[in-house]
Design a protein around this nucleic acid. Structure first.
Lengths: 152, 152
DNA sequence: CGAGTAGGTTCGTTTGTTGAACTGACTCGC
DNA sequence: GCGAGTCAGTTCAACAAACGAACCTACTCG
């Protein structure tokens, strides 16, 4: 009777949900992207219960989004760093950023994302890599496998 | 001692997490995008416990991502439809799709997204709306407010 | 009249989350 | 060399959320 797992469902959204659906996980990743690496940095920045942070970091390491790197002996201490698999998750956070900015800040002052070097504002947008055009959800179909699946 | 809420944090990712972090919610939205509208359709397609589905749909309606539309009298029955705010969430699901496809289907047959009319494959990618370039998480800064905030 | 459909609610059990307290191995200042 | 502080956790009890089964209401169909 444990919580239903989605990590073996035949759908990329389901598998990503299984990971990001853990409470706090997207915020732990956000902090990692803003440069935090140590347990205490994450803990203080977020105010997350330590037991939960410990479980989340362990899972991110198990799933290959982060690795632990030893930065000190005596006592042994290690920090948590994003792997390429973890850094690839930035696009998902960016899309969440965009939606949140557009729809969840009604009237409040804007929070912006900018390029560290050019100082230009960055506005995330999801497009089709092939055509460069924004996506229209009403025109999309999800298919199991191009060869075997014929249904909707 | 209830679960920590993020919906009033001054960060768009946190606010979006507060919604999508509810277990099952991204999948309920996925089903809505694939055309499902009725309680039973969602329930059967996902195998979600009815009490949970009921809570999720109620929240999506409360938060303005869906609306109920009456489609029958005697007994009164209504269906759940996405609003523009709900449809805007497609970009987030698409980014999740991309990450899941790239990183969570090791060796398994690909699942694809295609245009209903042109039948061309669609590959979601997050870019900067202004420059059209993909995002580099290492070059980004998150700022509270362009006028008042000077820190990292 | 009984079975089926649609859209839920209720309930007891199991998992997950929370915050506080505790641990252990160090370092630093006095 | 002693107490305070740092860092990275673990343990615990209370509470919240998710689970699946059973139940409910209001119809329709045969």
């Amino acid at each position: 009777m444990r919580r239903t797992r989605f990590d073996d469902w035949p759908c990329p959204i389901a598998r990503t949900t299984d990971l990001l659906g853990d409470w706090w996980t997207p915020l732990v990743l956000r902090e990692a992207f803003s440069g935090r690496r140590r347990f205490d940095e994450f803990q203080r920045a977020l105010g997350i219960p330590k037991a939960v942070l410990s479980a989340r970091l362990d899972r991110l390491v198990d799933d290959g989004l982060m690795v632990t790197v030893e930065y000190q002996d005596n006592p042994v201490r290690h920090e948590y760093r994003l792997t390429p698999k973890g850094r690839a998750m930035w696009d998902v956070l960016a899309a969440m950023w965009r939606w949140g900015s557009d729809w969840a800040f009604d009237g409040e002052p804007p929070v912006i994302l900018s390029d560290r070097e050019t100082h230009q504002e960055v506005v995330p947008l999801v497009v089709d890599e092939n055509s460069g055009a924004p996506l229209d959800p009403r025109r999309l179909r999800m298919r199991r496998n191009p060869r075997t699946d014929v249904s909707a």
